[in-house]
């Protein structure tokens, strides 16, 4: 028996919004410690890692480890049926063929149950073995809305954005046929609110170029968290991380573009 309950179904809606442009289907690995998804996009250029800890749920029970293949589009359709204030419960039996989504209104007067067929995902199991923490040359924390805005604005100029980070701050630039754009963000000396701060932790400066197409998928996670963390080192994938309240995080890994 697997059962996971979240008082705020809105969190799950936002999680789906954050992955639906990159993944068509994904395996949700459920265990005693929580729910995990690790999947690459179709082009194998980016990787999504979603982690929802069991202690972050309002109720969580997982008697046996389960791997449930789900269509992200179908899941999105079902979550659209949840009211903004509804509670959501995910439920499945051991060796399930279906998963149930149960939505309950705050006054408990409405109870809706949706059943979704699971997909047989016989595709490769990623088996990511990376457990050691990489030490990054630069780690930037900045407001997620600002990051979304910069990615959107600079995408108008070209297909990629260059991130140049030094101890003063981070510079984003793009260029294309009709001109070029640069946005510099200085490290905030004393931001009034933590969520408005720009913080740079630097070992050595980095300069990396990334595809706008993927960045614009990652920023869909913006509504999950006021701050985004960008971890960068030369010649390794960017890690773009959004915390999901007290329950977990979503991390996107994107390989930089290299001039051959």
């Amino acid at each position: 028996m697997f059962e996971a309950r979240l008082v705020q179904s809105a969190i799950l809606k936002k999680v789906l919004d954050a992955i639906k442009d990159l993944l068509t289907e994904a395996t949700f690995e459920c265990s005693d410690s929580g729910i995990q998804v690790q999947a690459m996009d179709n082009a194998h250029v980016s990787l999504v890692s979603l982690n929802l800890r069991s202690d972050g749920f309002d109720k969580y029970r997982c008697d046996r480890n389960l791997s449930m293949g789900m269509s992200i589009a179908s899941m999105t359709k079902i979550l659209r049926c949840a009211g903004a204030e509804d509670t959501v419960t995910l439920r499945a039996v051991d060796n399930p063929e279906n998963i149930m989504f149960i939505f309950e209104s705050p006054n408990k007067e409405k109870l809706a149950e949706y059943e979704m067929k699971l997909i047989n995902m016989d595709q490769e199991h990623l088996g990511i073995i990376k457990t050691k923490e990489t030490s990054y040359s630069c780690v930037v924390k900045m407001p997620s809305q600002e990051f979304s805005r910069i990615c959107r604005d600079l995408s108008q100029f070209g297909e990629s954005i260059t991130f140049a980070c030094s101890k003063e701050g981070i510079k984003f630039s793009a260029s294309g046929d009709f001109g070029q754009a640069t946005v510099k963000l200085a490290q905030t000396a004393d931001a009034d609110k933590e969520e408005e701060a720009v913080l740079v932790t630097m070992q050595e400066p980095v300069k990396l170029t990334f595809s706008c197409r993927y960045l614009n998928c990652f920023v869909k996670a913006g509504p999950l968290c006021a701050q985004v963390q960008l971890s960068m080192s030369n010649d390794v994938p960017l890690v773009c991380e959004y915390k999901i309240g007290d329950i977990g995080h979503i991390r996107y890994y994107l390989a930089p573009k290299i001039d051959d």
């Binding site: 990787l47 073995i129 290299i258």
Partner: peptide, 14 residues
């Protein structure tokens, strides 16, 4: 593609 190789080398080092 090079980007793909970087990602694969990062996650699945030999």
């Amino acid at each position: 593609r090079t980007s793909q190789k970087i990602l694969e080398r990062y996650f699945w080092p030999d």
